[in-house]
Design a protein around this nucleic acid. Structure first.
Length: 264
DNA sequence: ACCCAGGCATTGG
DNA sequence: CCAATGCATGGG
């Protein structure tokens, strides 16, 4: 086990709440008080420790995944200082101190996951996604490696329909896997260019592109305005007000608002 | 048996 | 350019 320090306030329970809230995700598996993922065929376990986490194994290949999963790219202190002056966030943020929105480590996994979540409830999406993972992915120890782009590019629509995808979504996923786009290269592009390239793909609309900016690229200004849960969370505000109101911390604001709405 | 759920593409006005 | 429609599953 290797210790990884996490700066500032850090709440492991809040940060990993997402992996327990709607059921168990085979590829980001909550198991015996820790989070398990498969990186390069090896299973990595992250568990809470004083001032940070314990990780095994920790090396050059697994460290970036740990960094993403724990949301380490986010700077919380500037957000907290700013949120104290907003009457919507001020009462919410203090009880969520140390919550770091988890980032999806892999762009393809992020997009496929988003497609499964389009329109349906999150428990439904998770059930379908887990059946897909078990059919096309590879199990390490407890956790499963998410299906590779190559594997899904080779899949047939009928195979995805068999695990619960609509015919349309099966087309989207296979089409994405086969598309001529460098998903890893998107990190180098500005927000609007990322949006434009993603929305050009069939099955990826504004909602999915915005969550990709927010939860994969950690872009500060990403704001999934069309998201149903987020719209409910900001219902008292005027339509379209959120994006302006929470600038320049749209992404963190959205995550804190959504988590606050989920907690009892 | 309904109805809704962290959308999207397609079609029709 | 905006409104209506089908999609498939899980949970209430």
């Amino acid at each position: 086990m290797a210790f990884v320090a996490v700066p500032g306030p850090f709440d492991f329970v809040l940060t990993t709440e997402r992996f327990r809230a709607f059921g168990s995700d085979r590829a980001s598996l909550w198991h015996e008080g820790g989070l398990h993922r498969v990186v390069g065929g090896r299973e990595v376990r992250i568990e809470p420790a004083r001032g940070g986490v314990e990780v095994a194994p920790l090396d050059a290949e697994t460290a970036p995944v740990v960094r993403a999963v724990l949301g380490l790219p986010f700077a919380l202190d500037p957000f907290y200082a700013w949120a104290a002056g907003d009457e919507v966030l001020a009462p919410i943020v203090p009880r969520l101190l140390g919550f770091r929105p988890s980032l999806a480590p892999d762009p393809f996994e992020m997009l496929v996951g988003a497609i499964t979540s389009q329109q349906v409830s999150l428990p439904s999406a998770l059930a379908i996604r887990n059946r897909m993972i078990e059919r096309f992915g590879v199990r390490a120890v407890e956790a499963w490696a998410f299906p590779t782009r190559e594997r899904l590019a080779a899949a047939r629509e009928e195979e995805l329909v068999a695990v619960g995808f609509s015919r349309r979504k099966a087309e989207y996923v296979i089409g994405l896997a086969r598309a001529d786009i460098d998903l890893d290269g998107l990190v180098a592009l500005p927000d609007d260019e990322v949006r434009a390239r993603l929305v050009a793909l069939r099955g990826i609309g504004a909602w999915t592109a915005e969550w990709f900016l927010a939860r994969h690229l950690a872009r500060p200004n990403a704001w999934p305005a069309g998201d149903l849960a987020l719209r409910k969370a900001v219902a008292p505000l005027d339509a379209g007000e959120g994006r302006v109101r929470f600038h320049p911390f749209e992404n963190l604001s959205a995550h804190y608002l959504l988590l606050a709405a989920r907690l009892p």
